[in-house]
């Protein structure tokens, strides 16, 4: 299988504190990878390194290499804004802009230069359909997005991310703020999306990792302890620490 992201010996420091240690992993295209591990082990940090959102935090230092489609994402000539267009992100807390549903979705395409009303209309419709929320909100495109339910807001945020045609979708505990029904809707959605996109998602929910992911990466104290097929990790982990974590002995 084609590997879309290759991480080699990645280290990251917040000031003097090291948050990622010698991380090596390759992410196959059009799969779902689950990142698991106890709080503070560096999952979000790792995720934010992939689209360089860490650039915005002062005193972050990074060593190692990340290749996206063979291209070094830390290279000087890389356009960070284009990188973030290719590698989209969905946050833990649904964060729609305080604008209409339509303007939320159209925000990204407009940013990247699309002005034609007809094209924007198409993109809005297609993105909302891809995020499995079109039927629910097609009649309220002009309404403020903050009026939607939490689950709808999160799917709107997914639609907003899809609207710029990314290749990879990073999700940081996308369902942790949602009720069970909304959660299962998003899980279903992820399964559909992997036809077209590569998804990397952080989750605290072991069942969720088992249900939706192809690959699982277990982090502990900034280290990648184990990475492999989800089935294998959960049925027959190679590392004692992985076993302890997934059986709930710590975390």
């Amino acid at each position: 299988m084609n590997e879309i992201i290759k991480v080699t010996d990645l280290n990251l420091w917040y000031g003097a504190a090291q948050a990622l240690r010698h991380v090596n992993l390759n992410i196959p295209e059009k799969t779902i990878t689950a990142l698991i591990g106890p709080s503070g082990c560096g999952k979000s940090t790792f995720l934010k390194t992939l689209n360089r959102m860490n650039d915005l935090i002062p005193n972050v230092r990074i060593s190692g290499e990340i290749l996206y489609k063979g291209q070094d994402i830390f290279a000087r000539d890389v356009d960070v804004n284009l990188l973030r267009k290719e590698i989209g992100m969905v946050f833990q807390k649904p964060n729609p802009f305080p604008m209409s549903v339509y303007d939320n979705i159209a925000y990204g395409p407009r940013t990247h230069g699309i002005k034609s009303r007809a094209r924007l209309d198409d993109i809005v419709e297609q993105s909302l359909k891809d995020a499995a929320i079109w039927d629910e909100i097609k009649n309220r495109l002009k309404k403020n997005a903050l009026g939607l339910s939490g689950g709808q807001q999160q799917r709107l945020c997914i639609a907003r991310a899809l609207a710029v045609e990314p290749q990879v979708l990073l999700m940081d505990e996308p369902t942790s703020a949602l009720d069970p029904i909304s959660t299962s809707k998003i899980e279903e959605l992820c399964m559909q999306l992997k036809e077209k996109y590569t998804i990397i998602t952080v989750t605290h929910n072991m069942q969720q990792a088992v249900r939706i992911s192809d690959k699982t990466a277990f982090f502990l104290l900034g280290e990648l302890v184990e990475f492999g097929d989800t089935e294998k990790i959960f049925s027959n982990p190679a590392d004692k620490r992985t076993e302890d974590y997934i059986t709930g002995r710590f975390g």
Binding site: F91, F97, Y107, R160, V164
Partner: peptide, 10 residues
């Protein structure tokens, strides 16, 4: 809000 916008490539 700002993070969401930056993550979209703005």
């Amino acid at each position: 809000y700002e993070d969401a916008s930056l993550a979209l490539g703005a």
